[in-house]
């Protein structure tokens, strides 16, 4: 299946179908989840009104992690099969993932202040999310530093895969580290017994954010394909089609 859609033309025709579906689903789900979350869902008796932040925080963090998984898998495909579509998928995913991670961190901090009295604690989950943000940024920075397209794809793919190896190790070490340094964990996810009327909008928002991610990635990939096509056409119009070799001769052609 992978190789079937690895063809840019086939990918383009598939993407033309998927783009509107993802776009509309994302818009519908996110808007309705937010309206439900802001105005309809009854308040949580423990956390009060701040609970409403869950509808922007949880989907951002969840989809950001999925975005990193996507980035790493696309990088793996790009590295092993040297396929340029996988590379452009990874390239498209990085800035969106970084933005979602940033949203997750920022809304988490804004949630933390009224809930636990601090914008930031060096909790395992926060710390590894912060590291993931740096992984996204590092990935984009290393792409920006390499001019040659082949080298860029390969070095960037290695970087993304190292990050994927490193993330669980960091999670483990930070877990151990905070259990040593913090007396009792301040953060407790959710609280006891989430009512299903609170849960559904969260799921809607997660799916919505996921569709938003897919929509943006596809749009960016289509944009890059078009850019490449314009470049090729321009070069062909200018007459430069790369160098070609003449047949082997035994005479010195300059003599």
């Amino acid at each position: 299946m992978l190789s079937f859609f690895a063809n840019p033309i086939r990918f383009q025709s598939l993407a033309k179908w998927l783009v509107p579906i993802f776009g509309i689903t994302a818009f519908g789900l996110i808007v309705s989840a937010w309206i439900l979350g802001l105005f309809v869902v009854p308040i949580d008796y423990q956390q009060g009104e701040t609970f409403r932040i869950i509808y922007v925080h949880v989907p951002a963090v969840t989809v950001a992690s999925l975005a990193y998984a996507f980035l790493a898998s696309a990088s793996f495909v790009s590295f092993v099969w040297r396929h340029s579509l996988a590379d452009s998928a990874a390239k498209a995913a990085a800035p969106i993932g970084a933005a979602l991670t940033f949203l997750g961190l920022a809304t988490g901090a804004l949630w933390g202040k009224p809930m636990w009295g601090a914008y930031w604690v060096w909790d395992a989950r926060l710390t590894s999310t912060l590291v993931m943000f740096f992984l996204f940024v590092g990935y984009m920075a290393i792409r920006g530093a390499i001019r040659d397209e082949t080298t860029r794809a390969r070095i960037a793919a290695i970087t993304a895969m190292i990050g994927a190896l490193n993330l669980p190790i960091i999670k483990f070490s930070v877990d151990w580290w905070s259990s040593l340094h913090q007396p009792a964990s301040l953060l407790r996810a959710g609280g006891p017994g989430i009512d299903s009327s609170m849960l559904y909008p969260v799921l809607m928002a997660i799916v919505g954010y996921g569709c938003l991610f897919g929509w943006l990635v596809l749009l960016k990939m289509l944009t890059e394909l078009d850019q490449r096509r314009s470049l090729t056409l321009m070069r062909r119009a200018a007459g430069r089609i790369g160098s070609s070799a003449s047949v082997q001769t035994t005479e010195d052609p300059n003599a």
Binding site: G163, N166, V174, W177
Partner: peptide, 17 residues
């Protein structure tokens, strides 16, 4: 600059332990 950005997350586990 890039080396610092890439090595920072890598160095966290050995530093912690």
């Amino acid at each position: 600059m890039l080396i610092v950005l890439i090595s920072g997350p890598l160095l966290a586990p050995p530093l912690i332990f």
